[in-house]
Nucleic acid binder design. Sequence first.
DNA 1: GGCATGACAAAGG
DNA 2: CCCTTTGCCATGC
Length: 118
Amino acid sequence: MRPKDRSSFNQLVFEICRSIPSGRVITYGGIAACIEHPTNMDPFAYDRIKARWVGYALKDCPDDVPWHRVINARGQISARPGCEFQRTLLEDEGIAFGKSGRINLKHYNWNPMPLKSR
DNA sequence: GGCATGACAAAGG
DNA sequence: CCCTTTGCCATGC
């Protein structure tokens, strides 16, 4: 994927985020897995790359994007300034945190409609 | 134009 | 289960 395509990639990320209902969460990789992009890259490696790009996209997302519903694959909130606030938002939506600050993905994970089949 | 860093994740120890 | 390594590349100095 070339920098030129980043903009459209980000738009897809935002679109998926907006489809997450209150009280549910998704992982960075989960979002990445919904976005297929024409590439010659090894798909196995590509998914991990995209997961990183999802984080970049959310760094400066529009106000109507529920960025707080995106967590990492371990069910935890990724460390960064403001992460305490994210936990508060999720708890307000009824999401319970485990002892080590982890969310039960089995129960809260949201599976969005794939934008393109894989 | 190198070099370090990062809202990631899988695999290995 | 926790910690480290590895793949990868956009970004900022």
